[in-house]
Write a protein that binds this DNA or RNA. Structure first.
Length: 473
RNA sequence: GAGGUUGUAGCUCAGUUGGUUAGAGCAUCAGAUUGUGGUUCUGAGGGUCGCGGGUUCGACCCCCGUCAUCCUCCCCA
């Protein structure tokens, strides 16, 4: 007998976990719809050529490829080709259409871009869509990192207005307020990072600079400076970067200081303009205080301009954002992020469609909510009542009551076997069912039922109608 | 791609410098109790000690290999 197992980096979700995850999905869906976004779903697999080259060299290696079916019945020419390429296949992270032409979805953004290009004639632009589906990465799993995980994305394409950026910030605020997770939203612009590279006299080193700066939280300024040096940044450049990182104060004060430092950079001034406009739009959107419910998190002053924010993916061109949990009790990386990409659909031949989008890392949000203990308590068990099965005529009587309960919209079930009484009771207890109904000989003859409240232990014999009234939500 | 951790019952884990029949709790089943659960008590079933090789009179324990696992770095969500 081999022990059952599941593939590395995948998980089962128990009934209780699924309920909590669906609570997150439902909360996000409600907010997305409230902001006018439309649902979209794309296939689990894409053609491999759609995905390769879109996520950088590292990303390409992490794409889960699907072996072609029917290799044994290929034409002789293809078989010969495969034989010739065999050594290459064994020595490099490389594959050919003969071996694999499909791959599992790596994220939701590229499939969305593919969708927009394929359906450009059917879409009314500007187009806002949200998408909540699993994605797969052939990564080495570790804490908070899986090979199969879910993403929730909202994107708005076909408009360059910074209102879109402000709307997305607002969606983040609304979502995390509803989920009762305190967050800090970091905001930056790729244009400021480009300007910073210019300032160092090394415009082509922007990626190196941003990768190093992104680690500021983790390794501190000394670590970042070392990495910058290793990546070939001059001492003068490092000094310039330090000067910018050391700018403190409110968002407005930071932007004023940046415009002083970057006044000779067109890209820098553009970036500053983007950020200040986005923040102004956001301010107008949220001018009147949003409705707060008891226990909601006050995320009022939590949007922070942070020039060290980089974001890994290289397709971002404008404003970029990242969300981290601001509670000291929780150690977790980013739980969401996104930004503006000017030419995503250009990859598939459709030029001039600008987009901006954000993603919710729901697996991490789940872990954070678990740690903060902010899930609603009543998510535990849906079944409200269980009918004990006494067999024979009583079983028939029980089935009749069961139907009446369900017609009254009360989630109910019957123990399917006329098993020993204490076994049935133990089962109801383990399931956490609130009420147990006892339709036995006496009850049936009187056309009544005994209702036992499993929390208090209290029990009384009443009519079925009274029972329904008691149990009704 | 680099480094480390741990593999013993369905689950979580003990297991003496290497010693003869490998244990506990939980779970399951049965009974105390044929209409009363959550807290009791009694009993039962359940193990190729990850796999392969080596050292030894003797290996769950030591050595080598291998597979799996989790964690750290890289990168990311």
């Amino acid at each position: 007998m081999s022990k059952p197992s599941i593939p590395q980096g995948t998980r089962d979700f128990s009934p209780a976990e699924v309920r909590r995850r669906q609570y997150i999905f439902n909360t996000l869906r409600t907010i997305f719809e409230l902001y006018g976004a439309q649902p979209l779903e794309t296939p689990s697999m894409e053609n491999l050529v759609t995905l390769t080259g879109k996520y950088g060299e590292e990303g390409d290696r992490l794409i889960f490829k699907i072996l072609n079916n029917g290799l044994h019945e290929k034409k002789d020419a293809d078989k010969e080709k495969l034989n010739n390429e065999w050594n290459t296949l064994l020595s490099k992270p490389y594959s050919t259409p003969v071996v694999t032409e499909r791959a599992l979805r790596y994220d939701l953004t590229i499939p969305f871009a593919r969708y927009v290009v394929m359906h450009q004639n059917d879409i009314a632009f500007p187009f806002r869509r949200y998408q909540m589906q699993p994605v797969w990465r052939a990564d080495r799993p570790q804490k908070g990192r899986y090979r199969e995980f879910w993403q929730c994305d909202v994107d708005m394409v076909g408009s360059t207005s910074l209102i879109n950026e402000a709307e997305l910030l607002s969606i983040y605020q609304a979502a995390f307020q509803k989920l009762k997770v305190p967050v800090t939203i970091k905001i930056n612009s790729r244009k400021l990072l480009a300007a910073l590279a210019e300032l160092c006299g090394m415009p082509d080193k922007m990626m190196d600079i941003t990768i190093a700066m992104d680690k500021l939280d983790k390794i501190g300024w000394v670590g970042v400076a070392n990495e910058l040096r290793e990546r070939g940044i001059s001492d003068d450049g490092i000094w310039q970067i330090e000067r910018v990182i050391n700018v403190k104060g409110t968002n407005d004060e930071k932007l004023v200081a940046f415009s002083d430092i970057m006044q000779h950079s067109a890209s820098g001034m553009e970036g500053i303009n983007e950020l200040s406009k986005t923040l102004a739009y956001y301010g107008s959107l949220n001018a009147s205080a949003p409705l707060m419910e008891a226990g909601d998190v006050d995320n009022d002053h939590n949007i922070v301009v942070d020039i060290s924010l980089a974001r890994g993916l290289n397709y971002y061109t404008g404003v970029i954002v990242e969300v981290v949990c601001s509670s000291d009790a929780v150690k977790m990386g980013s739980i969401g992020g996104g930004g503006r990409y000017d030419d995503l659909t250009g990859l598939f031949g459709l030029k001039g469609v600008s987009g901006v989008g954000v993603s919710f890392g729901i697996d991490r949000i789940y872990d954070v909510m678990e740690e903060l203990d902010v899930f609603p308590k009543q998510l535990a068990e849906a079944t409200k009542a269980m009918l004990v099965n006494f067999g024979g005529e009583n079983e028939t009587y029980a089935l009749q009551i069961l139907q009446q309960l369900r017609s009254a919209n009360i989630a109910a079930e019957i123990y399917p076997d006329a098993a020993k009484f204490d076994k049935q009771m133990k089962y109801a207890n383990r399931r956490g069912i609130a009420y147990v109904l006892l339709p036995g000989d006496e009850e049936r003859q009187k056309n009544m039922v005994s209702v036992k409240n499993f929390e208090t232990g209290e029990q009384k014999m009443i009519s079925v109608d009274e029972a329904i009234a008691t149990l009704k939500p």
